[in-house]
């Protein structure tokens, strides 16, 4: 497989169906921070909240901008730590109140 096909066929974000090519194109255009890439491509906004694409994008940004991974700000992690049904939260609160 040539490089171009490889970039087009490699999925970086499974939640939002984003390819390696889309990520690399955006970095080339100057969106060189994971938070900027996230806001255009929705990488990290899906149900897994960046657990898969986060480290992959960090690595791509590091390689393409010549920085080390510790110099790059990763996605912010926010609650809930795992997806939970709204109904469960609504009910749970009521039980605890009693």
């Amino acid at each position: 497989m040539d490089q171009k096909t490889l970039e087009e066929k490699t999925i970086i974000c499974r939640c939002s169906d984003v390819t390696l090519k889309e990520v690399r194109d955006l970095i080339r255009e100057g969106y060189t921070e994971p938070d900027e890439i996230k806001r255009i491509l929705r990488t990290g906004m899906g149900p897994c909240q960046g657990r898969t694409c986060g480290p992959l994008i960090l690595r791509e940004v590091a390689i393409m901008t010549g920085r080390t991974i510790d110099e790059i700000v990763p996605f912010t992690y926010r609650p809930p730590s795992k997806g939970i049904k709204m109904g469960a939260i609504a009910k749970g609160g009521e039980l605890n109140d009693k």
Binding site: M45, G46, P47, Q49, R78, P79, P80, G83, I84, K85, M86, G87, I89, A90, G93, E94
Partner: peptide, 28 residues
Amino acid sequence: SSWDFLDKMAKTITHTLPPISELTVIRQ
């Protein structure tokens, strides 16, 4: 983010739009 918001939001919205009970919250 606060727990209080998640709790109150869940109660308010599932009362007004009940099917949202079945949706999974992924981020605050």
